[in-house]
Structures are given as structure tokens and as C-alpha cells.
Amino acid sequence: MIANEYINRAIDYILDHINENISVDDIASHCNFSKYYFSRMFKIETGESIHEFIKRVKMEQSAFRIKIEKGRSITDIGCDYGFSSSNYSSAFKQHHKLSPIQFRRCIKQKSLLNPVFRNSIGLESFEECDKKISIEILEDFLVIYERHKGTYRNLSEHWGVFQEKNKDYITDKTLLLERTYDDPSITKIEECLYDICITVPEGCTLENTYVLKGGKFAIYHFKGLVNQIYSSFQNIFNVWLPQSNFEIDNRYGFEIYRKIDCDSMFMEIDLCIPIK
């Protein structure tokens, strides 16, 4: 768990400005710390230096764009993240061990292996996937959150501890949400970043709160077992988005837990993908 408020503030700043040429100085200044002190603090808390984190996020988010925006040129995508054509190809290959062109050719096949449960998956047709998706406008959510970096294998345990810790804020109107920042077919599973959240009423004064922005979303209405969630995301990313008339925007997606059977692990979850 990443519990340090200032580190989370820095991560939020990086994620919100990842398309810009941000520096360690910018981030330390944003958090009101000296560059050298804050750099040490960030490395201790996350296991990565600020520079390494920024570079990795740029490489993985741009790879995600290559995956879902099949009609866009690799040069344009790299440019979005501040790279020239030659610099982007070199940096991409160093990080992913493939050139951007090779990555685009093989990412769909790579996506068919669930890195959490180590099983192969199949993809739905566009028509099958489209039947499960609705386009909706969601309100903002005020939430208490807890940020984690690492495998999703311990997610149910994290949820149990988080709910017990915040039980005084849970009512029959509380929603359980999970904000995800990475596609685990691209990001190493031990480096995936996610927030577990519960909604709270306006006026909550806890420090670990933020407003999870609403807006326009494509919502995949998932019904199934926990080990099938990954394949539903891959249906959205590999099948629905490339063939639909919609484009994902720069917000991060999240999930709303509607029903959970803890014995069978059958779930009903809204997978909310932000679109323009």
C-alpha cells in the first residue's frame, strides 16, 4: 500500500501531466519538498525513482494507445508523450524489448494470456461485446481511497481490511469502486497501480479522499467469476474500442461493484471506460 499522502499527491500530478515534459523539480515543488529529499522519499515508498516512474508510465500508456488506437500512426502517439520519432522507437524497444511496430502486431495475441490467473482466454465478437455495453453519463463520486501497487492476487484481502477500517462510513447507499490505471497485458503485474474506494457523503473531512470524476463512459456490464474480469477488459480493449466509433479519453477508468457473492465469487460489476 502507498500510504504517504505526499507520494500519492506526486503520483496524481504525474498521471495528470504524463503528456507533458514534467521534471523531478516540478513534482517536488508541487509537493513543497526539496528535490533531493523528495526523490529519496518517493523511491522508498514506491520502489522506483521519480524519473523511472515517469519514463515507465509514458512507455506503458503510449503502448496502450498503440494497442487500442489502431488507426493512428506510431509517430503521432509517441509525439503525444513528448518523443520524436527516432527517440520514441529507441526508448520503446528498450522498455518493451520490441519495436512499436512489432508490439502492435503481437499485442492482441499477448493479451490472450491472463497474467493474474495464468490461463488463456478467448475474445468475444464485436456484436457479443457491444450487447453488454451501454453509453452513460455518470456523476462525480466523492470517495475514500487506498492506493496499492502490485499484483491483484491479494485484492480481496485488501478490500476486507479496507472495509473494516472504514466501517463507520459504510451505509446501505455506499458504493464500492476500484480505480485502475494499467492494462496488465502491458504493465508487469507487480507494478500495476490501483485504488480501492468507497463513496462517502459530501463534507467528509478525511485526508484520503478525492473526487472521482464522472462524465461520459462506455460501461461493460460484467456478470461472472473473478477470474473472468481480465478477459472482459481485453474484449473492450482489443475488440470493442478498435471497432466502435468511440475513442477513449485521458481520464482513467474504474469499476463499480454492484453485487458480490463471497462464497462463489460471482460478481456483477460495471467496467467504466472513459470516452470522448
Rank of each mutant, 00 (worst) to 15 (best):
I2T: 06
I198T: 04
I144F: 03
F103P: 03
K216M: 08
I101A: 13
K67Q: 15
K188M: 09
A3S: 14
A218V: 09
I11D: 02
E146A: 12
I50K: 01
Y169D: 13
E52K: 12
S111M: 10
H158R: 13
P242S: 03
K213N: 12
M1L: 10
F141C: 11
Y230N: 03
Q94L: 06
F126L: 14
S185P: 06
F92A: 02
C262T: 12
I219R: 05
K97R: 15
H30C: 09
K97C: 05
I54C: 05
I236V: 15
I248V: 15
I219A: 04
E146Y: 09
N32M: 10
E202R: 10
T151E: 11
C31Y: 00
S85T: 12
R56C: 05
V116M: 10
S120F: 12
M265S: 14
P184W: 10
S73E: 08
S231D: 07
Y194G: 02
K188F: 07
E164I: 08
L138E: 12
T199D: 06
L123K: 05
I27K: 02
N238S: 14
I77Q: 02
V226Q: 14
Y6W: 06
D76E: 15
C79P: 01
I229W: 01
I74R: 02
H51G: 04
Q61L: 15
Y88V: 02
K131N: 15
E52D: 15
L177N: 02
F103C: 00
K216V: 06
F33L: 03
G203P: 06
L155P: 04
